[in-house]
Design a binder for these strands. Structure first.
Lengths: 221, 221, 221, 221
DNA sequence: TATGAATGAGTGTTCATTCAT
DNA sequence: TATGAATGAACACTCATTCAT
């Protein structure tokens, strides 16, 4: 009786097809028919599983967010307790290879364009935004940054992450995840140093790893 | 007979109406009829002046870019020759009040969402992106940053500018231009200091001005 | 194993659900899914029992007709042989409380709207129409009305019955069955009197009953 | 500049096409495309002139009502002051040849089927119904019928008119307008006579005319 | 120059029907 | 028997575009 779960599978298939269709045709030209065709289903099935196009799009954005959040949680779990390492984990999750596929970045860009006018998407975006901000803020606080400045550092970091991502999406040329991590990581360290926060051992290890990876990459290039 | 120039006026009216319509209805729901109504013209007239909707949208994005570029040029002209001051001029232009109106930010966000799928808009975006990057890079070079690193610093700065802008657009809550300039300026200075580049006199003046403005603002708030 | 008859039960459940759905949503918005839901079955089951929507609707109208016809037969059986009493029986059956429920009247109205364009429903309607007409005609003949005029009086009576019913359906306000019977009864009597047909004993009894019922009703109101 | 009035003309064309389409395909199968094709226009124009299908249908029913009302008004104007003649005028208007075309009767039948579920159509129907009722009631009153009974006689008459019309629509065989007028007229006279109201001169003239027309018709048949 | 009536292709969505389970 | 997932044709409606005036 493998009937259970067919709904979940179909929904995920449709969400993946939606992301692919946005990448292939752009948000405006992503029609129900194209999504359905890409998913190998009939147009009527979307109504069956999502009710409407708006709900499918909302579910798609929610899936993107959930995937990202899952990654953050996983990396934080692996990072241990050292706050600087946890910052790197957050940054690293945002620049995980799986998140930086062109398809994904294009989808984010498209959804961002809708955020100011589609309340449902705006809500989702605000949830993500706040969560990233508070995650960062907490670790800055644990690093000894004065509480009056943790929000500011979180904003610097979040802006840098989003800016790098967006520019990658706009350039069309993919995202160099190693360089992105280094760029954000160095900026974080400079801000910390300026506030007298010593780089802890974990950060040094992480920085060394990043540089090694980058050297490796240059050789292969 | 002031017949000459009527075309220019009508075109600008339509472009402004387009930006307003994108803000009011979102990119997808911005129809020719709505734009025409907002501009106080008949739908048929758009075809007369722009040929098609695609061309009107392209012209609108081009106008946004041109306005920004004009502002950069003007501020660079006022900034004199000191490279740090010129960096501040570039940053300041990007966070000029006139550029940070909600209408404008929403329009940018909307266009960014189209960039990966509309070649004409992609070309415009790339022009802007390169110009910003090379403007920044030049000044970093003139500040004595090793040429191997000027591009990197330009990328940090550009990402930060775009990221701050985008987050403002997504949050829906407007952009605190003073805080934005401070945020980007401090990060630039930290990177310069880390590379042994002393803050020149102009930078110090600028930093003092920003802080004064901020203090002022706190009082009024 | 009461398996026998399950089909009959299911069919009647679906027919009742159809009448209810027409009342609730209107003929056009009565979908298979809604009917099935109302009957507590799955949409696929309708096909099993009726083959198609058209056949279900035809069966529903046929059921309405059969119910009415059964009522006429029963009342005629109770009326004895006096022709005027039999006319009252026919009229009374058409204004029986069970036939005048809003649900039923709305269903009739809906089916009448389809009659000119759905041959199957047209056939059913014509059967009912002819049967009513010939039932009435026969009794008028037995009352001594010249045969050249029995058809005419049957038409007057039938038109009055249908007209009263239709106006009740259109007004939405239910049908005052006592007043309806009086209205039709009096008109019949006037036409009979004009043709020199004396009211027979049964008619007098019936008229008295109707008036008594009406007096009763006024008191309670 | 015959631009003025084009809207009125187009609207009437679409209304006529709607009546024709309802007659040809039935209410449910009357699609925008079929109406537009019948009117020789494109589907989009309907939206231009009526906004939606619902509004077109409402306008169509309103037009049927207005046509009928205009006819009643015209005949009443010609009827003079004699109340019995005015009753005949009202009945005659309802059975005017122009109102009894099969197309028209089928359209009425179709709309009646919608009345219980489409509020806008219900409102129109109620207006017509009340107007007919009060028109009839007034003349019965002027004929000397006790005021307690004028409503009752109006209801008898209205039911008869509607019933005759409906049976004609259902039978599919057209409406014998002369017979219809005689049927309603005689019933009215019987009810009046039963209440001691003498037929006035105008009524006698009218009755004579109807009989003459009927004799004429029999000869040609 | 300017209008807005007119077009018709394309959209999201509904729904009777089918069919594997 | 009974289910409900799946289909796909058909629908009302939108909108960029054209064109007579």
């Amino acid at each position: 009786m493998p009937r259970v779960g067919v709904s979940k599978i179909r929904r995920r298939q449709l969400i993946d097809a939606t992301i692919a269709a946005i990448h292939a045709h752009g948000y405006d030209d992503t029609t129900m028919a194209k999504i359905a065709k890409r998913a190998g289903m009939s147009p009527g099935l979307i109504a069956h599983y999502f009710g409407s196009k708006a709900e499918l799009l909302e579910a798609t954005m929610r899936a993107l967010l959930t995937d990202l959040q899952t990654l953050v949680a996983k990396r934080l779990g692996e990072a241990g307790e050292a706050p600087r390492a946890r910052l790197s984990a957050i940054v690293g999750a945002n620049f995980d290879e799986s998140q930086c596929a062109r398809e994904t970045v294009a989808a984010w860009l498209a959804f961002w364009g809708q955020v100011p006018h589609v309340p449902a998407l705006g809500r989702l975006q605000r949830i993500y935004s706040r969560r990233l901000h508070s995650n960062l803020k907490r670790e800055f606080g644990r690093l000894g940054v004065p509480s009056a400045q943790t929000g500011y550092l979180a904003e610097v970091t979040a802006s840098l992450i989003d800016g790098v991502w967006m520019r990658a999406g706009l350039s069309g040329g993919g995202l160099d995840t190693v360089a992105a991590r280094r760029l954000v990581g160095e900026t974080i360290d400079l801000h910390l140093a300026a506030r007298g926060v010593a780089r802890d051992a974990a950060a040094q290890v992480e920085a060394a790893q990043v540089e090694a990876a980058q050297r490796e990459k240059r050789k292969t290039a």
